[in-house]
Computed example of a mutant assay.
Amino acid sequence: MNILTKTGAIAAMIAALSIPAAAQELRVGTASLGGAFFPMGQSMSNLVNTYAEGAFTMVPVVTQGSIQNPRLVADGEIDIGITSADIAADAVAGRGAYEGNAMDLKALGPLHPSVLHMVVMAGSDIQTFGDLRGKRVAVGPAGGGTLGFLNNIMPEYDMTLDDITPSFLSYGDGFSQLADGTVDAALALSGYPAAAVMQAAASGDLRMVEFEDDKLALILKDNPAYSTFDIEADVYGTETGATLIGVTNMLVVRGDMDAAVVNKIATSVYDHLDEFIAENANAAQIDKSRSGSLAIDLHEGAASYFAQ
């Protein structure tokens, strides 16, 4: 047998063994470090890597957050994106930040709610949202969900971003600057407790900025995807609790994603919420029943899972 024959025989033997190709790696878009989305993506990835039975793996990636993630999913740069229900609806409808660019996205399932943390040091003269006028405010990354909220809230106060001095920073950096006095207030649309807020609380006493009752009523009326959430004082060690606005977060995928893959992801995550909660406190706020009332349609692979 010459060398070419031997080589061919070896190749045939390898083919006969049906050695599987490396598992497909799925990328889940989260947000900047310091918020709740990145650790949520880490915990989800751990569940998928454990229970997807080698069919594929998942890895979390840092992104600019809720507004950018639908675009990244639609463009195929990531496979799954974490965003909020209101932003997902805008992306599918081609409105708001996505004006004229409707996207074929579907829901994979609900996650925890995110609340709009509006935080100052306890001794600040900023009492309500309107007092942010003329102040230095860390508003989160440029593609994050905080800006989406600001765009809906500021008109109720006859304000725009031009009325503040915004710093477009990761939540971690923004709250570090609040603690050292570089900014007057820091905002973060995040699950609670948020790591960035906890870090700032370790440096000094904080206070949550709230809305006047009439303004809060208008904001909720004009933005039906928003809800209110009561944050107890012991969450961040503040002197009093606060009522904050927020929205349910969700997972989005492309409409043409393989249904079997979507179903396997949903099974890996939602069948093991006890493990999810043990690793990530925000997972305790996940309500699977919300799968039937998300702002966009469920992917067929997710619908078959939740219908069980």
Score class of each variant (00 low, 15 high):
48 V>R: 03
19 I>N: 09
282 N>K: 03
98 Y>I: 10
101 N>S: 13
257 M>F: 09
181 G>E: 06
135 K>T: 11
204 G>D: 09
160 T>D: 02
139 V>I: 15
208 M>F: 13
92 V>I: 01
22 A>M: 13
102 A>P: 11
253 V>W: 05
95 R>C: 05
180 D>Y: 12
100 G>Y: 03
159 M>G: 12
223 N>F: 05
202 A>L: 13
81 G>F: 14
40 M>D: 06
213 D>P: 13
287 D>A: 14
14 I>M: 12
241 G>L: 08
133 R>C: 06
243 T>W: 10
41 G>F: 03
105 L>H: 00
4 L>Q: 13
305 Y>M: 02
242 A>S: 12
194 A>M: 11
61 V>E: 10
114 S>P: 01
188 A>Y: 05
220 L>K: 14
28 V>I: 15
168 F>C: 06
25 E>W: 09
63 T>H: 08
18 S>T: 14
107 A>C: 09
152 N>F: 09
194 A>V: 14
138 A>S: 02
67 I>W: 08
173 D>W: 11
38 F>T: 04
191 G>C: 07
188 A>M: 07
292 G>A: 06
60 P>W: 02
198 M>H: 07
240 T>R: 06
41 G>W: 02
289 S>W: 00
45 S>M: 03
59 V>H: 08
13 M>K: 14
302 A>W: 00
64 Q>P: 11
167 S>R: 07
140 G>A: 08
296 I>A: 00
127 Q>V: 15
292 G>N: 07
217 A>W: 03
198 M>N: 12
72 L>R: 06
159 M>E: 05
138 A>L: 01
239 E>A: 14
290 R>H: 10
101 N>I: 10
54 G>F: 12
276 F>P: 03
174 G>S: 10
130 G>N: 09
300 E>W: 02
274 D>S: 11
60 P>C: 01
299 H>F: 13
242 A>N: 06
183 V>W: 05
204 G>M: 09
51 Y>W: 04
283 A>P: 01
192 Y>S: 09
51 Y>I: 12
257 M>S: 10
141 P>Y: 01
73 V>A: 03
2 N>H: 13
